[in-house]
Structures are given as C-alpha cells and as structure tokens.
Design a protein around this nucleic acid. Structure first.
Length: 1010
RNA sequence: GCCGGAGUGGCGGAAUUGGUAGACGCGUGCGACUCAAAAUCGCAUGUCUUCGGGCGUGUGGGUUCAAGUCCCACCUCCGGCACCA
C-alpha cells in the first residue's frame, strides 16, 4: 500500500523528529496576546502497551488541541502517568520483578508509542505519580488535610477484597464485588484513614449547576452523593406489659365441651362513662377476677363481638369502642392449665359506656357472674400480679426506656406508621436486649443475619424479621403504642438505621406488614396527576378487590379509573383509615392528608413540615455518600506520611522529611498484612528520626489520591518549593476541557472535585472546581461489535494498523467513527480505516492539480467548508467535520483543480487531523519553513460564498412532488406563477382548487389543494 | 422500580431552529483501465411497484400546510442509582 500515494512511515518519523528537535509543542505559561487553553486527557496507567482505547483517548483530543492552538490559543496538552497501582505489584509478584523498574520501563516504552500518535504533548511537563518528586506533594497535601481535620483515622467496617488483599473504597465496589478483580467483597472492621468528602457533599452537588457538563454526568454525580431532604422523627420506646390471658367461669371457653383450641376470643375492658373505673366480673370466692369475655363467631369482627358481649352479659346497652388491639395474645387459662392445658387466641377490646342504661341480664348470666365497678389503680395492681395476667396494658406513662430517631422522607404519612423496624445492627437492639421477652428468637435471627453477606442481603427481596416483644414504641402523632420489629431489609447505614413503617404508603413496609399481619392505616389520599388519574394507583398488596373492579375492562385508562374508584369506595367504608384484611395495599403517591387529626386536607408537602414540627422532629438532610477510605494494604502506592508514638497516637511526618520514601526492602507478596510492615529500613528510619518505640504507618494510599491533583503538577513540574506556583495555577486552572472515560464519573471525577474544594478551603488555590469542560468519550469495540478482549480474539493492535496505513489515518479514522461528543460505542471497521486512507491520498493527489485560477464554485465551496469545519470541531463533532472535508476534496477534484492559496487553506483545515502528512506538504511543496501547526486557522470570507440560488422542494399536500431553483431575491408572486406553471405541479393541481400557497424562503414551498 | 440517554438503509452514522430523510464513509452491483488481478476511476445502491405511484426514521395515537425533530401512551436497548426509608 505504501508504494502508492504517500509513504506514511517515512513522513511520520521525519516530522516527529523535527517537532521534537524544534520543540514545536513546548508551551509557556504565558504568551503575550494569547489566551490560555488547558486541554487535558486523563493520564495513562503504564501497563506497558498502548491499545486502541489510548489512541481514542489521546489522539482524538489532540485534534481538538491542535485546532485550538491554530485558532490562536496558547494550548497546553500534557501527558503523564498514573504510575502507582496494583498491576505493577502483581507483575512484580508473578515474575519476581521490581515494581519500580517495571513501571519506569513501561513508561519509557509507552512514551515512544505515544509519540507515534503524532500528538502535540509537551513532554517537558510530564510527570509520574510514583516519582518521589511527585508523591512528596501528595504527602504534603495529606499533611495539610490532616492538620485541618479533612483526613482522620477511624475504625470502621471496610470493604475487603480477599483476592487483592486490600480495602476498597465504596466507589470501588460494584454490586458487592471488587471493581478491579470481580471477586466478592466482604465487610471487615479495620482502622483506616478517611478523607472527609462528606464535608463537601452539598458543594459537590450544588456546584454542578455552574458547570456546562453533559447532564448525564451531573446526574450520575448527584445520585452518587444522594442528597435527600427529610425529617428526623423521635419515637419513644417503652416497656410493654404484655400478659397472658386469665379468664374466669364467665368465659364461654370455660364451659365444658366448648372448642377452645384455636378459637378466637375477645376480652372486653369496660370503662365507666364518668368515673375512672372499670367493670369487673365478680366470681365465686374472690371479690372480682376478670372482665367480660366471649368467643368470636365466624364472620364477626372483634368489635362487633365485644359490643354484643357487653350488652348480653352486663345488660349495659350503649357501649362504644375506644380501641381494639390488633395483636392477639396466646392465653393460657390459669385454671384450665392445671386441668387440660388448653390454649386460645385473644383480642382485647376496650369499650366505654355512653350511659348507664341497663337491661336486666338473664338469670343464667346472673348466676355465673355479677359485676362491680373497680377503680383504675386497683385494676392495675391486679393486672400486675404474677399469677393474674391480663392482656390489657397498664398505662402509666412513666416507663420511657429510650428514644429512637427515625429518618423519613414522608413525614406526611406519620399517622399511618403502625410499627417500627430497626436494622439488626441498630444499637438499640443491644441496649434493649435485657428487656426483650423473646431474646432467644432474637438471637437466632441475629445469627442468621450475620451469616449473610451484604450482597445476599441486598439481593434477596424476601423480607423477614422478628418482633421485639416486651418493648413498644409510641407513634408521636397518634400517641398510640406500636410494635417494634427488627428486619434485615433495614440497612444500618441508610438514614438512621431505623424506619417508621407505613404499610399503606410504602411498598416495602406493605410487603412486610402483609407477611406478619400488621395493621395498615391509610392517611394520604393520592392526588390525580397533571393529566388526571392516568397512573396506576396500586404499587403492591392484596389488591384483588381493585383488580376485580376493573376486571371487565381492557387494560388502559378505564382499568385505571376503576382502580381509583375502588379505592375511594374502600376509604369511604373505613372511617379511621384502617384497611380491612383482603383489601390492604400500598399507594406511594403524595396527595392530601386524611385520618390525620389537625392535618387533614393539608398537602403532603405542607404536612411534612407541619407534622415534623408538631412532634418535635427536625427537618434534615441525609446523604448516600460516605467518607472516602484511602488506606490500602499494598506496597506500590504513596506512603502515608504518618508515624505512631509508643502510645499509638498518630503524628504527621514533618514536612522536612518529605518525601517520606517508599522502602525498597520489601517482600511484595500480599498476605493481608501491609507489605510495608516487613520493611526493616522503614522501621529503622522511623526510630532514628522519632525515637525508640515509634512505628511507621504501613498502609499506602489509594491511587485515586495520586490522580486527584495531577493536573496541577503539569503546570509547574520542576518546582521544589510548592506543588505548583500560584502564577502557573492561575494561568491555567481550571482545566478548559477534560477528556476522559465515563467509568470515572463517580470516582476520579468526584474525588478530584473534592480535592480541589479542599485545597480551596485551605486557601491553597483560588478556584473551587477543577474542570470547566468535561467530555466523556465513548468506547471502541472490536470489529465484531463486542468489547475488545484477547479471549474473543477481536483486539485491534494500533501499532500494526499504523504500520500499514500510518498514524494520520488511524487518528482520523477514530475521529470519523462516530460523534466524539456522545459517549456511544463504535465498532472498529478495518475497511473504514481504508476509506480514510483513500481520502488522505486524494487530498495528497489534489496537490498535483494546483491551478492558477480555480472556479468561483470551488472558492465558494472552500469558504463554506471553513465555516462548517470550524463549527463542527468546536462542537467536537469531528465525524461531520471530516465528511465536510471529504465533500470538498471530491468537488475540487471534479472541478479540475484548486489554486495554491486554496490548497493551503485546505491543508490547514486538515492539519489537526493528519498532522504529519500536512506538515510534509506545507514544508516541502508548500514552501514554508515553519510548522503548519503554528499557522493560523483559516477564517472564512463570506463574501466569496455564492449563495444566490437554492434548489428547494415543492410539497403538494405534504408530499414533495417537484423542485425548483429559487434565487434569494425572487418575490413570492413571481415564484408562485413559476411554480404553478411547472408541469409536475400542473399534473397535481389540474382541476383542483389551491387553498394555500406557503413559501418559506430557502426552505420549502408548500401547496394545499382540495 | 426511579433518573438520564438513545432507537434512522446491509453496517458506522448525517439531517445545528419543524421545511427535499438517508450527507459522508464502508459494503454490494454494474462498467472503464488491465493478458489478468490489485489499486484507481465512473455509475447505481431505503423498500415495494401494474412504472402512474405507494410505503418508509422502534410501536400506536395526536398537533401542523409540513414531524426523525413537537405532544400523549407504549415497547426495546444502553448508562447511573436501587430493600435508600
């Protein structure tokens, strides 16, 4: 291929050498009359070999950097190496090498490969994060952060990768697995150094507003920070006095032959209408022993049964329900225990008499029991007797054990909170342990939970839990006691690790409540959406009644209407909001409050604030993001500049001892302990400087620390006094355009933003965002459309392609493969590469057709091309810029030639894409002795653009039927006459009436006929 | 499930504000040059067609003289978050 057209190999070598010798791309911090432009590509890990992804990451942005340079900017486009990290260490372990040597050899080799791209890197500014002259400043910044409380040491649960034998940051754990090696990550308690990124959580979200980045990047960062507005609601916790049921001879169940086992019964507590007294049955030898009881018949509610029992057994005719307790109690009859050991289920119903109107009870009833009024205090004493246990709670109000804060985003549903769920890890679970009646059950559950990995726990959606018997919480809005559960669906580090469960308005609580038969209270009437009741209402639950409401309808709007109507009907039936069995569901929409005294008809939004206020809660914000743990138990990383005194207190290594060097006498084999702990030299060094008994920190830093500030060091990489001078920083920062991979959106990009904000807070820099522009590039796939991988055998070796078609072709092909400003994935097409090579050859051959005078059409087309190419490169739509250049070259060929001046302009337009080839023409045939890359970018002369006529389509009833050439100055009437005379138009309009004639100059003519 | 983004020929993709859908490149077909092949050049290339035209930008509706583009509903794919309270 090289024997025809141009010799890429020769040309490229020649100009790469020339550029180096002439320092063409050396960049000064300031150039008079030029604005600075900092174009940055995420630096490379020195893996030892350049792949197509590197070309895409570095060579394509280089086109942009060259373009900006020609446009008159003073452009910095630097390159360096992110040189600490696991691969070096793994290679070292595997092949018994020195990671330092391995890394530096790779960097040398890769520098050569990078040069072969023809990129305009200023190599005088390069850096390597593993170089002591670099990491000295990483350590220096760590020290400043330490002094200002931005880094601290803490023992926390950490993500531990068994394979890599190191801690991982939350950001490095993907779906419970190690982001690097894919092995499962386990939780371990370990001391580690933490960066206080949470201090900047708000700024990391809010400051996104002022950045013109793609919304997907900003959104991903927002979600990562996970800021949520909500309320902290305090719930008091108290001891529940739960008693087994004792009944006397008045109980149905006591009578011979009654089916007691598995029978549902009520115990009725009867309150006096005026006095604080309760009606108790008087039995046999004792003054009184119990309350009215009765069996619940099939189809009756406990309430109905209770009212009936009161009327029948006591004769009082107007009882009124105060409260029905939902929890049933498994009672043992005190007297039956001895004889038959029978059991029954009890529901307790508390009624109050409206008046003392009384019918005489039957003789039979009177024979069994007569009734006496007993003062509350006396009843309470009775209930507390060891041998006399009743399921009725004694209300005393003085038994507050503790308080628990619950975080919720839906304080408006507080009246619907019918139970509380704590994470198994919640501290309250331990502190309440001795109060809990069912601690065996609890222990068994806790053991089971601890066996589950975090991954298992989050993957199994089957909810389960255990009630903490013996304690209960009080719903601060209703004042009602509610049970407390623990459940592993509540995660310890989300919110406060405690949830107020509102089954009627939360899907997860609904599932849990259905499983354990907990009450549903509906307190928010959903509002119709902006377009009416267009949304499906039910999220989950026993919604058969609702489904059947719309069963005859087709799925769609009428089904949805039926759902809403069924809900309204149901809510009309249950005035207190408690949903009956079989009709329990959850609806998470916001709306207006119901069943919430004092707050009814308020909107969810208002109620959240007002309810929070009334229950002495607090509006608050929570975040998903956690502090950044940076300790790594690995060798090849930046040493943490900390030593411990004999008491174990950490101290910074003073600045004069920086760089705090990475020891070399270390066996790198990972065994779960830090390799640095095995260094005699480090131990000795520490004792010599600080004294006997002092020990060094042996963990190294996460490599994301190294890369959090590297863009400063390019600006002033030789400076030995500061990480970069203020002048250099102010000249270049923030980075004008940062090119990188989408995979770094929630890691490097977030960390470095944090880092800069921290430096800003400490007054070390004068800007609080590192990157003005940001572009996530796409992915180059193999020719088969799959991700390139050795196992699939679809890996493209750029060196090999370059040896066939040259670097210019490869660069330009990558720019042509798809829009660089959209992070799509583009398959590598070997034939597509050939197409670009053909184009470059046509451009090359066009230089043999230089004529003295070219046609006006060519001149006009050239200037149009300038406009379009300039605009496209500016928007990083390099693919269409190239297609525009192709069109022009094709046209110029056909037009028979091009003037030298025009060819020079064309050459400059192509120069960023094919820097070697254009330089070759420019400095040989073109006759220049300075680089084309330092030439000015062409500016279009619009006066040379011929634009007097355009061909536009004629639509008849919306269909294009003809076309016509129109000059810009033609008036509408003459145009109309010409249009109507066209044979193609006549064909369609003959015998029809033309109702409308629309002319949009330069765009369309539209006729409406009938 | 929620939040982003995207669905256009055989393929990558183009159409910047609603105005001739498919630019440009690849592939394919035919032709020229050649003893032949490669390379190069030229022509054609959405689809159906009774050669009048019909149909075409994920699906179904709608707005408009005009819709890939705007509105409503849905489907699929990609990315982020996810038992997040």
């Amino acid at each position: 291929m090289n024997n025809k057209g141009f010799d890429a190999q020769k040309i490229e070598k020649k100009w790469q050498d020339w550029w180096r010798e002439n320092q063409t791309y050396r960049t000064e911090n300031q150039v008079a009359g030029k604005e600075n432009f900092y174009a940055l590509s995420e630096f490379a890990y020195p893996s030892g070999n350049l792949h197509v992804g590197h070309w895409y990451a570095f060579a394509v942005p280089d086109i942009y950097a060259r373009f900006k340079r020609m446009q008159g900017y003073n452009v910095l486009y630097p390159m360096g190496f992110d040189a600490f990290g696991l691969p070096a260490e793994n290679a070292a372990i595997k092949r018994d090498l020195d990671p330092n040597k391995w890394t530096y050899e790779n960097m040398d080799y890769m520098k050569k490969q990078l040069t072969s791209m023809g990129a305009s890197f200023d190599w005088s500014r390069t850096l390597a994060t593993c170089d002591p002259s670099y990491y000295r400043w990483t350590q220096w910044m760590f020290a400043r952060f330490f002094e200002n409380g931005l880094v601290y040491r803490d023992v926390t649960k950490v993500n531990w990768c068994e394979h890599d034998k190191t801690i991982l940051a939350n950001e490095q754990v993907v779906a419970g697995a190690c982001e690097r090696c894919g092995n499962q990550v386990i939780q371990k308690d370990m001391p580690q150094w933490m960066m206080k990124i949470t201090d900047f959580a708000d700024a990391l979200v809010d400051d996104l507003e002022k950045l013109p980045w793609d919304d997907s990047i900003k959104q991903a960062q927002r979600e990562w920070v996970g800021r949520k507005e909500g309320s902290l609601i305090p719930f008091t916790i108290r001891e529940t006095e739960t008693y087994d049921v004792n009944t006397g001879p008045g109980d149905d169940a006591f009578r011979e032959g009654q089916p007691i086992v598995e029978r549902d019964n009520v115990v009725v507590i009867i309150e006096h209408p005026d006095k604080d007294e309760f009606l108790c049955a008087k039995w046999k030898q004792v003054d009184w022993q119990g309350f009215v009881t009765g069996g619940i018949d099939e189809g009756k509610t406990p309430e109905e049964t209770a009212l009936e029992e009161v009327r029948e057994e006591t004769g009082y005719q107007n009882p009124e329900i105060v409260q029905a307790y939902d929890r049933s109690s498994h009672g043992l009859f005190w007297h039956v225990v001895k004889e038959q050991n029978r059991k029954a289920n009890y529901r307790i119903v508390h009624v109050k008499l409206k008046d003392l109107e009384r019918e005489e009870s039957s003789a039979e009833e009177q024979a069994i029991a007569e009734f006496v009024w007993v003062p509350r205090a006396e009843v309470n004493d009775f209930l507390k007797r060891e041998d006399m246990r009743y399921p009725w709670r004694v209300v005393s109000g003085e038994d507050t054990l503790d308080q628990v804060q619950v975080f919720t985003t839906r304080a408006d549903t507080l009246f619907g909170a019918t139970y509380l769920v704590l994470a198994p890890e919640h501290t309250l679970v331990t502190s309440l342990k001795n109060r809990i009646a069912n601690s065996d059950e609890l222990d068994a559950y806790l053991t089971e939970v601890s066996k589950k990995s975090d991954l298992d726990r989050q993957q199994s959606k089957e909810k389960n839990g255990v009630e903490l018997k013996g304690v209960e919480a009080v719903n601060p809005a209703t004042g009602q006691p509610i049970p407390i559960w623990i459940g592993d669906y509540v995660l310890p580090n989300v919110g406060t690790g405690a949830v107020m469960a509102v089954p009627a308005h939360d899907e997860r609580d609904c599932e849990f409540a259905l499983k354990y038969d907990l009450p549903f209270r509906f307190v928010v009437l959903p509002s119709a959406g902006p377009v009416g009741n267009s949304r499906q209402l039910i999220t989950t639950g026993e919604n058969a009644f609702i489904l059947s409401a719309g069963a005859t309808e087709e799925k769609g709007q009428s089904q949805i209407n039926a759902e809403w109507n069924a809900m309204y009907d149901l809510l009309g039936e249950c005035a207190d909001g408690y949903l009956p069995k079989g009709k329990r569901f959850s609806c998470t929409f916001e709306g207006k409050l119901i069943n919430s005294p004092d707050f009814n008809t308020q909107t969810s939004e208002d109620a959240r604030r007002n309810i929070t206020d009334v229950v002495s809660g607090a509006l608050t914000t929570t975040y998903r993001i956690r502090d950044w743990g940076i300790s790594r138990q690995r060798y090849w990383g930046c040493p943490i500049p900390v030593v411990y005194d004999p008491e174990g207190t950490p101290h910074l290594v003073p600045d004069e001892h920086l760089p705090w060097l990475l020891p070399e006498d270390v066996d790198h084999t990972p065994d779960g302990t830090a390799p640095l702990a095995r260094s005699e030299e480090l131990k000795k060094r520490t004792e010599e400087i600080f004294g006997k008994g002092w020990t060094p920190e042996v963990d190294t830093m996460d490599t994301f620390v190294d890369s959090s500030w590297y863009f400063y060091r390019y600006l002033d990489n030789q400076n030995e006094d500061v990480f970069a001078s203020k002048e250099a920083i102010d000249a270049w920062m923030p980075v004008s355009m940062y090119f990188g991979g989408a995979e770094h959106t929630t890691m490097h990009l977030l960390y470095s933003r944090f880092w800069v904000k921290a430096l800003y807070r400490l007054g070390l820099v004068s800007h609080d965002e590192p990157y003005q522009g940001r572009l996530n590039r796409g992915l180059i796939l193999g020719p088969d459309g799959n991700k390139m991988s050795k196992s699939k055998g679809n890996v493209i070796d750029p060196d090999e392609v370059v040896s066939h078609v040259g670097a210019d072709t490869v660069r330009m092909y990558l720019a042509f493969i798809g829009p660089f400003n959209e992070p799509g994935s583009y398959p590598w097409d070997p034939n597509g590469v050939v197409g670009i090579r053909r184009f470059l050859e046509r451009f090359w051959r066009l230089s043999e057709h230089i004529v003295d005078t070219e046609s006006d059409q060519v001149t006009s087309a050239l200037h149009k091309t300038i406009l379009k190419v300039t605009d496209d490169i500016d928007r990083l739509k390099l693919n269409t810029a190239i297609s525009t250049l192709m069109i022009f070259v094709n046209d110029a060929e056909k037009a028979g030639g091009i003037s030298k001046n025009s060819y020079e302009i064309l050459a400059r337009l192509i120069a960023p894409f094919a820097p070697h080839l254009v330089e070759e023409w420019w400095q040989t045939a073109g006759g220049y002795d300075t680089s084309v890359h330092l030439a000015d970018w062409p500016v279009a002369d619009t006066s040379l653009i011929m634009n007097e006529s355009t061909t536009i389509g004629i639509q008849i009833n919306g269909k294009v039927r003809a076309e016509i050439i129109v000059s810009d100055d033609e008036d509408e009437d003459t145009l109309r006459d010409r249009v109507m005379a066209l044979p193609e138009v006549v064909k369609w309009t003959e015998g029809k009436e033309v109702k409308k004639f629309i002319y949009i100059p330069g765009k369309a003519i539209s006729l409406v006929i009938v």
